[in-house]
Design a protein around this nucleic acid. Structure first.
Lengths: 347, 347
DNA sequence: CTGAAAGCGCTAACAA
DNA sequence: TTGTTAGCGCTTTCAG
């Protein structure tokens, strides 16, 4: 009862097994090229098991210079968190690769109310082996540049003109594909509701894809047909309202995120219009619930778990190889055709 | 360029400031009751700043015996992750309190494919100061009991008959309130779609609340009126299907999670029935999107961020005070009346 | 008020 | 093949 205050150390194991600490370390770490009799190994392992010995990660860190920890910095604002239904999935993909490599995940929410420097300082104290920044922002470029000279980083999302490896989807192509679908269905007046201000890379790129598809098809880009959403359904609802007030409203709209699309759907309903008969909608993200709104939303699938997985891979490679992989991974998206555009997607 | 291989240590700071390591430590940690001239303090601080010195967390951990890290163990299966739209919010609440106390958050997904022992081992190596288990399961009782003798734990969710502090909502009352709302609106034939098998505490308790409300009102509990969902909208859709096939289907149903309710809504639509005119629905959780389905879902609000916040508080208290707070915190829920029951909630 | 010294638990270079 | 030794970077008595 009064015994196990202190966790067993390698020393304890050594004593119990009747060997030295070195031997314990050698055996337990499975160091190769050392010929230790099976009998000794067995004794050590048994002693360790009996004591419930676990090496102390901090001590190991200190001497090996490796924390075996990477940090996930969440750059999401509260509004974005709300929009971000796939954090759990990203986490799953990420932690799967990490665990296999023996790494652990430290979470750092970096909301706008904390200056990045403060978080950077904390990260430094922790001596993490690497860092994944989810949802990088323009303001982050400076500290990232500095940081990436010392420690591996990978971006989940994108930042233009930076040599930092990143993983993301090809937003331009994905958005263009969504809009092309609308065009293919005969729409000529196609509106856009952005998912966020264009200062966000993803929003900007989706806007670009929208323009590109229009241009390919020889359709005019009309300023009036783009309305700005900002993460929330409410913002999507307002944007749709604005589009509907136009003298000749679009017959279809590309909502650059599902969440924003949900708001748009609501507005449309409130105006007594029907989707897709009166107006077609295509979303972006394929959040789990998009299949369950009315009508089920045609949307662009975002492979959340794979994003996490690849980010982890890339970071681990940098850590192992000691130099940046200089890679931009662009994961494929796919258009999921459901019923909000009136094509396929059976009842 | 070839310089900053090694991070500056306290030694470096001491040298630059022309003092000893002790002094550096004393000054930088703001140890009280030590009279060091302001001038010396200034010099130390300046040297530290100039070098960009950051104390090494692992070294500190080793000597102080405190990691300043707590672990969040996610017990969610993939299906649950899907259902769990509020992980980000919980995270936000949690990391807010932790940061204030100088603690960090290590994430451990504990999916069913890893034996708990393995994760426990990893947790031990990390020597975390405490642990929050989100979504505890019956099978966890054993290792939890053992663990909690050594290290603080708090449950996010509930496990019956355990002395481990926990924070949760009062599912029984919350569910009862939802059902009472239906009864108040005149419904007598009220069905239940569970959010998960009853082996899950939350499901069980919501089922209990359902029964309780029925009983209070003198209504009969009918086996046939409870259908089992399992996390996903698809399961909710199937459950609703089953209810609708009954000779005399319920006129209202309490879906024990919004996600499951979304599936139910879809089934109802497919049957050409209308909500709330033909059938009323009340959900549970108040996930962000529940206000944006058609019709907006009346539901029970789950205070996700506060759950995280309180869990953090409780854990920190245990860590600071050295003994379990023996507390069960039950956070208040509230019925959010929207339009899926045909009462209030204006258009 | 400040410095010297010990030691947290572990690994790894070096001897024996 | 195994043991001895020297730190990793920090805090913290204990002397000066």
């Amino acid at each position: 009862m009064g015994k196990p205050r202190r966790a067993p150390t390698a020393e304890d194991v050594a004593r119990l097994a009747g060997v030295s600490r070195t031997t314990v370390s050698l055996v337990l770490n499975g160091v190769v090229g050392v010929r230790i009799p099976e009998e000794t190994r067995r004794r050590v392992r048994e002693a360790a098991a009996r004591l419930g010995y676990r090496p102390h990660a901090a001590a190991r860190h200190l001497v090996r210079g490796r924390a075996e920890v990477i940090a996930l910095v969440l750059r999401q604002t509260p509004d974005q968190v709300f929009a971000d239904a796939f954090l759990p999935e990203v986490l799953r993909g990420l932690s799967r690769v990490l665990r296999k490599a023996g790494f652990h995940l430290l979470i750092f929410p970096l909301s706008p109310d904390h200056p990045p420097e403060e978080t950077v300082a904390l990260l430094q104290e922790r001596r993490v082996d690497g860092l994944i920044l989810s949802g990088p922002r323009f303001e982050d470029r400076e500290w990232l540049a500095r940081w990436s000279q010392e420690t591996p980083v990978v971006l989940l999302g994108r930042l233009s003109d930076t040599p930092i490896p990143s993983v993301d989807v090809d937003n331009v192509q994905a958005a263009a594909e969504a809009v092309r679908h609308l065009i293919r269905l005969g729409h000529r007046r196609i509106g856009l509701i952005t998912n966020a201000p264009l200062s966000y890379t993803a929003s900007y790129e989706r806007w670009l894809g929208y323009r590109q598809a229009l241009e390919e098809a020889g359709l005019l880009y009309e300023e009036a047909w783009v309305a700005f959403g900002a993460f929330t359904p409410a913002s999507g609802a307002a944007a749709m309202e604005q589009l509907l007030r136009l003298p000749d409203p679009p017959t279809a709209v590309f909502a650059a995120s599902d969440v924003v699309a949900f708001g748009a759907l609501q507005t449309i309903r409130r105006h007594g219009l029907r989707v897709p008969q009166d107006i077609a909608i295509v979303g972006f993200d394929d959040v789990p619930l998009s299949a369950y709104v009315d009508p089920p939303l045609t949307t662009v699938h975002l492979p959340a778990e794979e994003l996490g997985l690849h980010a982890g891979h890339l970071l681990l490679r940098w850590i192992e190889e000691g130099r940046p992989p200089t890679q931009e991974i662009r994961l494929a998206t796919g258009l999921i055709i459901r019923q909000s555009c009136g094509a396929g997607g059976g009842a």
